[in-house]
Amino acid sequence: MHLAWARARGEVCSAAAARKVLVFGHSQGGHAALFAGELAASYAPELRLLGVAAGAPGPDVEHTLPFVTSASVFNGFNVAFVEGFHAAYPQFDPAAVLTPEARAQASIVDQKCLGGVAAALSSSPLVLAHNPLDIPALKAIVVANSYGNRPAGAPLLVVQGTADTGVPKFVTDAFVKKACAAGDTVDYVLVPGANHGGELPAVADGIAAWFADRVSGAAATNTCT
């Protein structure tokens, strides 16, 4: 959506400024923003991506799986993840990772939103018979669908609340560490005590200033060490 909107605007407005793009998103929107940055050069090469800001970005599947496979509270997420990948990649057989009991209930993902799926399955036994990352063919699909495995495409501003339980800090820490190791320019801002969504009011002016610096051409702060 980020890039499609920017591309459409560029087609309407011929000025060079219309092709300069700044991307922002929070939570799942932050997840999308990071992907937009990675895909911009190939998806919309006519655009000039200046910067990507992500607040508590929804964790990518690759880093999420290790801590959601061993607790029944995440059953709904796991079934939705497996069934979603099966819909996108029909060659992947859900029976390779789901228990028979979970397979029998899997149709619920076509009937309810994620919250309803989670509520219906949270008291069931664990739904994964095998860790998806232990299956090479599935791991390759997971990696391809996880952000942080390609160049960022532009300087990054990542904002994270230290008390966030929706997107835990350690998950965002792992992404930032990976991005820094890959040579991306990352300004990682922690907001002490902020929960999920609570970090944005505290840094709204800072995000606006960071975007203004990207437009002016100022060098981006890099907190990677």
Rank of each mutant, 00 (worst) to 15 (best):
F211D: 01
H31Q: 14
A80Q: 12
F67T: 13
L39C: 03
D187T: 11
A182E: 12
N149M: 10
F77P: 00
A194H: 01
K139C: 08
D173Q: 08
D205G: 15
E11Y: 08
G166R: 04
A102V: 05
T221M: 12
A40K: 02
D93F: 08
S216H: 12
G115S: 13
H63G: 07
P201D: 06
T99M: 01
A102L: 05
A208G: 11
V142C: 09
H130C: 05
P132L: 11
L39I: 06
F81N: 05
G51V: 08
D184Q: 06
K20M: 12
V23H: 06
A118E: 14
T172E: 05
I207D: 08
F170Q: 09
L190M: 12
L190P: 03
P59H: 09
G166W: 05
T69H: 00
N222H: 12
A181Q: 10
S216F: 02
T225W: 10
A33S: 14
A87G: 06
A44V: 14
D205W: 09
L34A: 11
A163K: 00
F67Q: 10
Y188D: 10
F175V: 03
K169C: 02
S27L: 11
S70C: 01
N145F: 06
L190Q: 13
G148F: 06
A17F: 05
A53M: 04
A118I: 14
A16V: 14
G148Y: 09
P151W: 05
A32W: 02
P201W: 06
V191I: 15
R150N: 07
G51Q: 07
G166V: 11
P151L: 07
L47K: 04
F67M: 11
I108E: 00
G193K: 11
L190F: 04
G58K: 01
S72T: 15
A40R: 03
S146M: 11
A219S: 15
G29E: 13
D205R: 15
N75C: 01
N149G: 12
D184M: 03
P66W: 07
A36P: 06
A118G: 12
D187Q: 15
P100D: 00
E83F: 00
L156I: 08
S27P: 10
